[in-house]
Structures are given as C-alpha cells and as structure tokens.
Simulated scan of single mutants.
Amino acid sequence: MCNINAAGVTGNIATSLQRFFNGSLDPFVRDLIPTSVTHLVLESEGMGPYDKALDALFRHFRAVRRSQLPNLQEVHIACKQAADNAYKQQCNKIVAEGDREGVVVRLQPFGFSSVNWDG
C-alpha cells in the first residue's frame, strides 16, 4: 500500500506525471509503487485526463513489471460506465497487456466497496 501524497505527487495525477516526470514512467513506479506490491487498486471516475495517467503508469508494462514490479499479480481498476471512451480504451489495453505478462487485471464497473483477490 502506498500514499501518492507522501511520494510528492500532488494535484491532478495525469498533469503531475507529464510535468514532473517528462513522460518517463521509471521514477514514478520506483518512487511510488514498492517492488513488493503484489496487488494494486486504482480508483478514478474515468473523466478528464485520467486515461493519460493510466497510459503513463502502464506504458512499457512488460519492462516495468519485470524490473520494478516483479511481484505484481493482480490489478483492480475502476472503469465505470460513465467513464469517457479514452479511459475505457486505456483500461481494455491494460487488461490485454496484463494478460500477456501473467498479471490479472480486473475492471470494476462500480468502484471498490469490496475487492475480491484471486487465490
């Protein structure tokens, strides 16, 4: 579990990622998500630039997973019906990339009142 505010990323995460990290995912993953993380939950309304945040977080997923998130097994992402199309497309892309890397990615249509982890 990690706290985005404790990592120094404040305000809109998509804007912060683009400005602070100049499009490079490595510092974000290394500083925000510990290598010991096995299960990850990402919650968003799916409106505005959140598709860009997902793109930044999961860009080069194969390399990032192997080098910085080797223990990652499962990801839950809020993907509500009201989310914009760009966000939904990014969510579907992440499901496919996770599948290729052996990471279960579940899209949650209603948020996270309860999350059931595999196993």
Rank of each mutant, 00 (worst) to 15 (best):
E43Y: 02
C79A: 10
R65W: 04
F28V: 14
L42D: 00
H76G: 02
D118R: 13
I13W: 09
N116M: 05
L32F: 15
I94T: 11
Q90C: 04
D31N: 15
K88A: 00
C2Q: 09
A82F: 02
G102R: 04
Y50P: 02
L42Y: 03
C91A: 06
V104H: 15
E43T: 05
L54Q: 00
R59I: 05
Q108V: 02
Q18E: 10
V105F: 05
S67C: 05
D26H: 11
P49I: 05
N92R: 15
F61W: 12
Q108N: 10
Q89P: 01
N3H: 11
A63Q: 01
H76Q: 02
A96V: 00
R19D: 07
D118V: 14
D99W: 13
N22I: 15
C79M: 07
F61T: 09
N116P: 03
L57C: 07
S44V: 02
S44N: 03
S67T: 05
A56Q: 02
F58H: 06
A56M: 07
C2D: 12
F21H: 09
G11P: 07
T15Q: 14
L42E: 00
S24K: 13
Q89N: 01
G8V: 07
D51T: 11
P49N: 14
F21K: 06
L107P: 12
Q68K: 13
R65K: 11
A7Q: 13
M1F: 05
F61V: 15
V37P: 13
G23M: 05
Y50K: 04
A7Y: 06
K93D: 00
M47Q: 06
D51P: 10
Q81F: 07
V95K: 14
D99I: 12
D99E: 15
G23A: 01
I94G: 12
F58Y: 09
M1E: 10
C79N: 04
A6L: 07
D99L: 13
L72E: 04
V104G: 12
R19Q: 09
V115D: 06
N85Y: 04
R100F: 02
K93Q: 03
G111D: 00
Q73F: 08
P70E: 09
S44H: 07
G23H: 01
E74T: 05
L107W: 10
E101M: 11
P27R: 09
E43S: 05
V29N: 10
G23Q: 03
E101W: 07
V29G: 08
K93P: 01
D55Q: 14
V41E: 00
V64R: 03
Q18N: 14
V105M: 08
I77S: 02
V105Y: 02
E45S: 06
F58N: 09
A78L: 11
K52E: 11
F20W: 11
A83I: 03
L72Y: 08
S36L: 13
R59K: 06
T38K: 07
S44D: 08
